[in-house]
Design a protein around this nucleic acid. Structure first.
Lengths: 210, 210, 210, 210
DNA sequence: TATGAATGAGACTTCATTCAT
DNA sequence: AATGAATGAAGTCTCATTCAT
């Protein structure tokens, strides 16, 4: 017979995760002390350990949380008709995510997670799965486009997907460092990049000849 | 009157920096202990502190080191004639840097530096300058190309530069996480992206009409 | 007006004491957590604290419990006729207690209690009284035997009693450490020891001469 | 090139072990904090961990220390001629050890070690070896005596050894609890016990008949 | 210059106990 | 009476840095 309801329990969990997120965003995983998280959460040391086994558990919970959110993010732009339009839609979704002021902390923690992924297997798995998801999505779109003759065939679908993902990873970095990034303009450039993948008449001719 | 020659002193410094680089690459800045660096350098605690004031100083020295190396890297592809060819040349240089097995540690430490840049002003400055350098280079090339009618004019030069830089940042991440990145194919895709920025006849017409 | 019957209350108390006994036997007093006892008892933290004021209270209750059981044990072999036979009877009773498999936990906790007695006055009192009881019994038997000329007079009754008690204390240790103790043989040796205390003809002569 | 000599280092080690011994004697292993040991040793927290890996390491070092001292203790009474006299010699050695005021702390820690042996394999091994040493010694003496017809043959040598060892274990307990033990008288009783093992004329007759 | 033993603040985590429900 | 979530002091241990040698 639990003393508090599932909802209450989940609320406390979120309270702690939010505190951890804020702390980690400010100072990174390893420069943040449990005391910081405890203080920020408004709970006690013991209470935090009632919900998470360890600091690492907290880090991994946030990694999982991020993973879950990205799953949702990707699902948004899944079943479009026109592949090229699908890519544009995906870019719009990620652009929105990139500029959402409420997501700043999450983006910063994301970067710390990228570094942590280099030495923590569990975090790496979560991070890699997090980019494999959109990659699979993009690859599917591109291959469909290539089949339909809408996208250049001389480029590897996987490579294109990696390029698009890399662009967003780089943007996250540049934005979080406080660079004066004109996201509008950048998105236009990305749109240009995508348009650049569109098969031209000469591509079709070349293909016919080949 | 220095007790040891400049050359000796510089040698010791490098010895320490190399040890630090190796340790940081493995475990990140904050999970690496000074003891690890001391052991790996083959020197003593005291000796390390004779050359560097603190662990942060060491981190910042490595950031500066990176900055210096990137300056050299950029200078390679500076004065080309054809702007588009210049971009391709730059990409080749960075692609080489990306795949150099000897640079793995540096790339990993670079990622840790990206995270550290979020909380250490000095590191951030170094990192940001490190991307501002190639950015200025790329912007110059592109603006030259746009003036000459070789590159589409409807895209911001800065945005294009940021996209290209972002691509490489993302590639560093994806490679260092152990992803199975086909760098050749990716570089072809990047080349395709650059070609996509090339002004077409319709662009010219559009421009004439405008 | 108690809310639950005395019987129920006593049942709960025993339930807790049994859980504590099992835990303490496994891990000692200070390495056992209240949480372990709570879990093993099947009750709640709060419930345990309704019956015992503190962990120390629990430890002391078990010490008292032991004390009470030993009182019973001693009373068994009290009023024999022949003093020597009385000693043998006492040894048999303790030998039985030593080999009873169901008493293993109690013996182990007993040892932890011996250590605890060094720093907890209340536990020490309980332990010391626990050995003073059989000691008094043995002293009485021996003095009776010495008066009757059945037991050597040149040995202090108290010393003999302490020796006999010490033997059993040592056996508890050796058995609980998992030593391969042949209890039968040891009891035979103890019987031999007791027989050794029997006055011989030469003792009687010596006494007459003195 | 060590900064301090072996002697200095060993001195520090002893300093810490002595502090630990005093603390453990007072409060047991698990109620003693590292802070207590640190304070008593006059060193710093870090210094203690420079010499011992952990609190458990400290406990085990003391167990080993005890083991080493007991080896010396046993070696004292090894090669006697007359087996019975050998037993008496051994008893005298242990009696001395038992009454040495400077050994009080060690005896108390010994008791805590007996309890700890129930749950710490390493400590148990050390403790058990510590009693196996004198046991082997006693068994050898007794078997020699039995062969020579000086000691009763109907008692197991091992059992007699265990009895003698148990006696001293029990004495340690009784003394450390502050009992008013008349060690002189007890030793006389133990001597009596040993004399009781001596083969009598009737034993010899019985043996001849058998 | 160079050493490495020493420092001590602070890291993470546990756990006996309480108290609102 | 009974629950179990919450508390927070205290536990063990680490580690960047210093300083006597």
């Amino acid at each position: 017979m639990p003393k508090i309801s599932y909802k209450q329990r989940e609320g406390r969990r979120q309270q702690i995760l939010e505190a951890a997120l804020a702390c980690f965003a400010e100072d990174g995983f390893h420069q943040t002390g449990m005391a910081d998280i405890v203080k920020r959460s408004g709970l006690s040391h013991g209470a935090v350990y009632l919900y998470f086994q360890s600091k690492d558990d907290l880090i991994e919970a946030l990694a999982d949380d991020r993973h879950r959110r990205e799953t949702v993010l990707n699902s948004v732009a899944q079943g479009s008709g026109d592949p090229i339009e699908g890519l544009h839609a995906l870019v719009r979704v990620y652009a929105q995510w990139l500029t959402d002021p409420a997501g700043e902390a999450r983006r910063r923690v994301g970067i710390h997670g990228w570094a942590e992924a280099l030495r923590n297997r569990r975090v790496r798995t979560s991070v890699v799965e997090g980019i494999d998801m959109p990659r699979a999505l993009i690859v599917a779109l591109i291959e469909r486009g290539q089949h339909a003759g809408l996208i250049k065939r001389d480029l590897s679908a996987d490579a294109i997907a990696r390029v698009l993902i890399a662009i967003f990873q780089g943007f996250v970095l540049q934005k979080c460092w406080g660079e004066d990034v004109d996201v509008e303009a950048c998105m236009a450039a990305v749109a240009g990049v995508i348009e650049g993948f569109r098969a031209t008449k000469s591509d079709m001719k070349r293909r016919t000849r080949a």
